[in-house]
């Protein structure tokens, strides 16, 4: 299965929770405890093992705060 990870830019996130709402695999926990430098509650990338790098959280983030990475093994990357 494809694996991936997301990086949430804490300076940009406003804690609306749309990424957690639209993650079909439940990887992102809705904003609860963690605060950003601006004082917004931040979502947490809670279940990294479930992420398949679909990119929907990045599309639906209104604040351009999410970057999605897909893991590619080196042999596969060299072949393509």
């Amino acid at each position: 299965m494809t694996r991936g990870e997301i990086v949430i830019e804490e300076q940009l996130c406003k804690g609306c929770g749309l990424c957690a709402k639209f993650c079909a695999r439940g990887c992102i926990a809705p904003p609860k405890d963690k605060l950003s430098p601006q004082g917004y509650l931040l979502p947490i990338f809670a279940n990294p093992e479930k992420c398949n790098a679909c990119g929907v959280c990045g599309w639906m983030c209104p604040d351009f705060a999410i970057t999605v990475y897909k893991y590619i093994e080196i042999e596969e990357a060299a072949a393509t």
Partner: peptide, 28 residues
């Protein structure tokens, strides 16, 4: 493993935060 970028902020968007309220779809 190498990391391939699937989804990143578009190049035409200048860096930095914008002023829209949390939950507003104008950013999308």
């Amino acid at each position: 493993v190498v990391k391939q970028v699937v989804c990143a902020p578009p190049k035409l968007k200048l860096p930095g935060p914008h002023h829209h309220c949390p939950g507003c779809h104008y950013g999308i």
